[in-house]
């Protein structure tokens, strides 16, 4: 198992993305059985409740994770890795992830907006409102403030246009708008992280791996230094 492959979990290398939960078993699940679903939640309709079918048949009520034992062991090393987020050493199987592919249902005519773009748009609106608003009854709703705060504190890039240009090129290898947006929003550092977070991209791995690697290295150039998270 190659530990260095990730350079992620720790050693203070990435103050921003120190993520805790990486288990010993793995990331690669390209050939998973499709019919096994430990967790099925129907969320694609507009107003349905949670419909969970969680298999608690394993002892102590823990989530079952059939068919997900690691195959390729991409360096999700067990043991400690220092930093804030230690790597979990665990022989327990992670939940099946391919069930959780991004299910983006964009209404017709909608354009996906990356968080960094949204930050610029909302900032502009806020500045305009301060200057132009003659009607004191117009106030920003709570959701505006929260969304604005969210985008502002999560801002990772120095230049939104560059991010857009860099990631736009991924469309040529079949990466869709939603996936591009997720890459931009989550700010991954390695291609393995991209595949772990957006499993749908693994299907065309042979086609998109190199372009994604290139895009990530370009993105790292426009990343803001010393991001310490949304609450800093």
């Amino acid at each position: 198992m190659e530990k260095g492959g990730k350079a992620y979990a720790g050693k203070g290398k990435t103050p921003f993305k120190v993520v805790a939960s990486k288990r010993g078993s793995s990331s690669g699940r390209e050939k998973e059985p499709v019919n096994v679903s430990p967790v099925e939640i129907d969320s694609d309709s507009d107003s349905e409740g949670f419909i969970e079918e969680i298999d608690y048949s394993k002892s102590n009520g823990k989530l079952s994770s059939k068919g997900t034992s690691g195959k390729d062991g991409k360096g999700f090393s067990s043991g400690k890795a220092g930093g804030k987020g230690g790597v979990y050493s665990s022989s327990k199987k992670p939940p099946k992830r391919d069930d959780l592919k991004l299910q983006l249902e964009t209404p017709s005519g909608a354009r996906v907006v990356m968080d960094c773009e949204a930050a610029d748009i909302l900032q502009q609106i806020q500045e305009q409102m301060v200057i132009l608003s003659e009607d004191p009854t117009i106030k920003f709703p709570l959701s505006f403030d929260k969304a604005y705060q969210y985008t502002k504190e999560g801002k990772q890039y120095s230049d939104t246009k560059s991010v857009k240009d860099i990631l736009e090129s991924l469309k040529n290898c079949g990466v869709n708008d939603g996936e591009i947006c997720m890459i931009a929003n989550s700010g991954p550092e390695t291609v393995e992280e991209v595949y772990a977070l957006i499993p749908s991209l693994k299907e065309n791995r042979y086609e998109n791996e190199e372009p994604i690697k290139e895009a990530l290295s370009k993105l790292s150039e426009v990343k803001l230094p010393n991001i310490c998270g949304r609450k800093n």
């Binding site: 993305k17 993520v19 805790a20 992670p94 992830r97 992280e193 949304r230």
Partner: peptide, 30 residues
């Protein structure tokens, strides 16, 4: 950092359930 597993929408709010039990999910800052 979490992954959305399901959503429920009512007239004025959206509630989600999420997971951090997967690779590259979990605490970012403490």
């Amino acid at each position: 950092r979490l992954k959305i597993m399901g959503t429920r929408v009512d007239a004025t709010e959206i509630f989600c359930i999420g997971t951090i039990k997967d690779d590259f999910l979990g605490v970012i800052s403490d």
